[in-house]
């Protein structure tokens, strides 16, 4: 028997995962925050259907992804927003080992991931940042597990290739 889902205990705590996904797609902190709020309200309004869901988290992520893509299509993305968000978060410079070079490289990673095709970008985000397994990613994205693996593989290969280019020639 399924446990009863509580909005405050089971849905609301997903906000940061949703935010990171929305931010990855919209690349705008304000937009991402709005998307998360809309997602949560939409999920709340569908509370009669919670019992029928296999995973409330996958359900929330799917809604968040779709809303983010809708918004992203309507508005031109501005990468600088995500840069700011990243810098406003746990600062890399807090780490004594960090350096300006590392910061630059982190920004390079950020730009690399952002430059990936939408499918690869979302799949990489869900795998690398949220630690989702292939099946969950497939459920959230509405594609097959095989497609997920292919997307992540291609995304990683591109990142690796860019890293090697950076090492050899600089960017």
């Amino acid at each position: 028997m399924k446990n009863e889902i509580s909005f405050k205990n089971d849905v609301l705590p997903l906000k940061n995962k949703l935010y990171r996904l929305a931010l990855r797609i919209t690349m705008d902190t304000g937009e991402a925050e709005d998307v998360v709020q809309d997602t949560l309200i939409r999920v709340w309004n569908k509370r009669d259907e919670w019992d029928e869901l296999d995973s409330i988290e996958a359900y929330c992520m799917t809604i968040c992804k779709n809303l983010s893509l809708d918004r992203h299509e309507k508005k031109d993305a501005q990468n600088i927003q995500l840069d700011e968000a990243l810098h406003d978060s746990a600062e890399i410079s807090d780490n004594p080992e960090s350096s300006l070079e590392l910061k630059d490289r982190v920004e390079l990673v950020h730009r690399l991931i952002d430059s990936l095709p939408e499918k690869q970008k979302i799949a990489i985000q869900l795998r690398e940042i949220e630690g989702k397994n292939y099946k969950d990613i497939a459920d959230i994205m509405g594609i097959t597990e095989e497609d997920v693996k292919v997307s992540i593989f291609r995304g990683r290969q591109k990142i690796k290739q860019k890293f090697l280019e950076f090492e050899n020639y600089g960017l």
């Binding site: 940061n16 935010y19 746990a90 490289r105 982190v106 990673v109 940042i129 090492e167």
Partner: peptide, 18 residues
């Protein structure tokens, strides 16, 4: 070292919160 930034970036992004 060349790959460090990738994993650091991922870890930093994991801490991004509302």
């Amino acid at each position: 070292l060349p790959y460090r930034s990738l994993f650091v970036y991922e870890k930093e992004l994991q801490d991004l919160q509302l």
